[in-house]
Design a binder for these strands. Structure first.
Lengths: 129, 129
DNA sequence: CTAACTGCAAACAATTTGCATACCG
DNA sequence: CGGTATGCAAATTGTTTGCAGTTAG
């Protein structure tokens, strides 16, 4: 039951967009942006491809306040969500990631992937208060 | 715009159920269980209350494989999801939690709450393989 | 050539809403 | 009593599917 994926233009543009943007777009936002380059693309195609990309670990799906967002950055990192401005910020804290992986392994779990996300107030918003 | 919540029987039973169960039920599962005690309750009431409980931090909502689950345990902990048997296991690794909180704070973030969840194969399933 | 993919429209599941009634404080 | 919550049914949102035509490898 192995599927031989084809790199269609649609999939290529979607992936490129996810890899170049730093805003963690929703399916809708991916749609609006990809539509600029492929005007007749439909939401169904966006959904189908996002699902494929997530399943094949070329992108990550994350949930924030009930909405799904997508991230093309595969480097393990933490997502920080500001409760004020709603920005989703990437934090590449390698020591934290390592501590976490180590802990899980010494506890007897073989982990495949993980998600760490936290909410608070970002530096920008703290200053303005 | 402060709302004066009332502790209705429905809300009470839902919360009690979440606090006593260790399986991280979905809204549907909460519904099926609460219905035993309150036969004429509806899904709408379940959804309304789960939303309120999550917003007021009396329960936590987590997302696993596109489905939302609820957890009445407020103690900060990690969720481990077994890719084989699909169990959602709570891990109370205080050192990990502290390391994480410390790191975030020394990095200049004031964090309100966080979610850590990871996927892998649980001990039970590893033995059986 | 042919299996994988697309666009389109229709179907679907999960969640939310409007409203009249019930009930907590 | 007043405002919050409920049950019911209908509406809405986000996502998925079937199908005929298109395309990458």
């Amino acid at each position: 039951m192995v599927i031989n994926r084809r790199l269609t233009l649609q999939r290529k543009i979607i992936l490129e967009y996810l890899q170049n943007v730093k805003t963690h777009p929703t399916a809708e936002e991916v749609f609006n942006n990809v539509k600029i380059k492929i005007p007749k693309i439909t939401l169904a195609t966006i959904y189908r491809n996002l699902q494929i990309l997530a399943k094949e670990k070329q992108a990550e799906r994350l949930e924030v306040n009930g909405q799904f967002h997508f991230d093309g950055d595969l480097d393990p990192h933490i997502h920080f969500i500001c409760k004020n401005c709603q920005i989703i910020k990437d934090l590449f804290y390698d020591d934290l990631v390592h501590y976490f992986e180590k802990k899980m392994e010494t506890s007897g779990f073989s982990i495949k992937n993980f998600k760490i996300q936290c909410e608070g107030i970002c530096k920008n918003c703290t200053q303005e208060a």
